[in-house]
C-alpha cells in the first residue's frame, strides 16, 4: 500500500485529479472490493429476507483514543445498530467531512481501522463520499456511515417488547468508552489504564440468535450509557426495571475515575455493549453463549423487568434497599464540592 504523507487540502475536495488521488491512495486502496467501483452508485444483490437499514454520524474528540479511533467507531456504530434488529450486516456506505490541514497519515490510519473492522464482521464497504471543509469548519474528521443488513428469520427484537418477568442482560462491563474519552481529553489530570469497549457485536447477536429467537429487546448502549437505554426501554414497553447494583459489571479503574469525579458509570457511554432483554428461562443460556464470544466475554444478568412503577428504573442498593436510578440528566458534570 502506498505510504501517504502531507496534509489534506481544499483542492483534494474540489473533485479533480487531487480528489481522485486522495480517494485512490487513502480509501480505495484499503476498502478494495468488487462491489466498490468508480461509478456513481453501488450495484448490489438484495438481501434474502427482510432488510434493516440504519445511518449514524460520528464525531469524537480526540479522534484517536485507547482501544480505537473514529474509523473503527464509525463501523461498529452502524453494524451494532443493525445487529440490534437481528440483522446480519451486509453493506456499508461512508461519508467523510475532513478539515483542511488534517494529516493524511492519520486519515489513512482511520481508513485502515474501518477496513479491518468491516472485514472482522463480514460487512463490505460499497460506496463513499469525501468532502473537505475549510480550517475550523469541522473538528478533524466527521464520518457518517449507512448500513444495510439482512434480518435473521424469526428474529424481531424491539424496544417495546420488554415484559414483566424478563431478565436484563448486559454484554460486558459498562462505561468504558465514556471513561476513555474523558481521560483522553485530559481535562482533569487523571490517568488510568482504561481502553474503549468499542467493538462490532454482530457475532454476539448471532450467537444469541443461535440459542433462541425469543429475544424481546436488543439495544446498544452508546451515548447516555446503559442507564439511558434502560429508561428508554421502560418507557417504550410501559414496564418497570429493577437493577441489582452489585451485579452491574464495572471495571475497577472506571469505578476509581467515577469516584474521583462523582459520576455514575451507568451513564457513561459504551460503544461495544448491548442491553438484552429476554424471558428469564432463556437468560442463562444466552449469557453462556455471549461469554463464548470475544466481544461479550463479560456478559452478566443485571436485573429484571417488573410491572411495578412503569417507566422507572429502580436500583437494589448494596444495603438491600430500593431507590430510583436518577434519570438521565444531559451533560455529565463532575461533582466535587
Amino acid at each position: 500500500m502506498t505510504e501517504v504523507s502531507g496534509k489534506v487540502t481544499l483542492a483534494m475536495g474540489a473533485g479533480g485529479k487531487q480528489t481522485a488521488k486522495l480517494i485512490d491512495e487513502v480509501f480505495a486502496a484499503r476498502f478494495a472490493s468488487p462491489l466498490l467501483t468508480a461509478d456513481d452508485a453501488a450495484v448490489l444483490e438484495p438481501p434474502r429476507g427482510r432488510m434493516a437499514m440504519s445511518t449514524d454520524g460520528f464525531i469524537v474528540s480526540p479522534s484517536f483514543f485507547p482501544g480505537g479511533n473514529i474509523g473503527k467507531l464509525s463501523i461498529c456504530g452502524t453494524v451494532n445498530d443493525l445487529a440490534c434488529m437481528g440483522a446480519r450486516p451486509l453493506y456499508l456506505t461512508c461519508g467523510f467531512v475532513i478539515e483542511e490541514g488534517y494529516p493524511l497519515d492519520k486519515l489513512a490510519q482511520i481508513a485502515q481501522a474501518m477496513a479491518d473492522t468491516a472485514a472482522s464482521c463480514g460487512v463490505t464497504l460499497v460506496a463513499g463520499d469525501t468532502k473537505v471543509a475549510g480550517k475550523g469548519q469541522v473538528d478533524g474528521v466527521f464520518i457518517t456511515t449507512t448500513g444495510v443488513g439482512e434480518i435473521v428469520e424469526g428474529a424481531a427484537p424491539a424496544g417495546a417488547k420488554a415484559r414483566p418477568g424478563d431478565a436484563i442482560i448486559v454484554t460486558g462491563d459498562v462505561g468504558r468508552h465514556g471513561c476513555t474519552i474523558l481521560l483522553a481529553r485530559d481535562d482533569f489530570g487523571i490517568e488510568a489504564d482504561v481502553t474503549s469497549d468499542c467493538a462490532p457485536l454482530w457475532d454476539s447477536v448471532k450467537a444469541m440468535l443461535d440459542v433462541t429467537d425469543d429475544i424481546h429487546v436488543i439495544r446498544d448502549a452508546t451515548r447516555g450509557g446503559v442507564g439511558t437505554v434502560l429508561y428508554e426501554i421502560a418507557s417504550q414497553s410501559g414496564v418497570g426495571v429493577r437493577l441489582d447494583a452489585a451485579s452491574v459489571p464495572v471495571d475497577p479503574a472506571v469505578h476509581g475515575v467515577c469516584s474521583m469525579l462523582g459520576l455514575e458509570p451507568l451513564y457513561l457511554a459504551c460503544e461495544g455493549r448491548l442491553v438484552v432483554i429476554a424471558p428469564k428461562e432463556q437468560a442463562p443460556a444466552l449469557v453462556e453463549a455471549l461469554r463464548a464470544c470475544p466481544n461479550s466475554g463479560g456478559a452478566a444478568i443485571i436485573g429484571e423487568v417488573t410491572d411495578d412503577r412503569p417507566g422507572w428504573v429502580v436500583m437494589r442498593t448494596e444495603i438491600g434497599a430500593e431507590t430510583l436510578l436518577p434519570q438521565p440528566g444531559g451533560e455529565l458534570l463532575p461533582r466535587i464540592c
Binding site: 442498593t317 448494596e318 444495603i319 434497599a321 430500593e322 431507590t323
Partner: peptide
C-alpha cells in the same frame, strides 16, 4: 443516604 436508600431502613 438517598443513593443507598438508607431512609427506607
Amino acid at each position: 443516604i438517598f443513593r443507598l436508600g438508607i431512609r427506607k431502613l
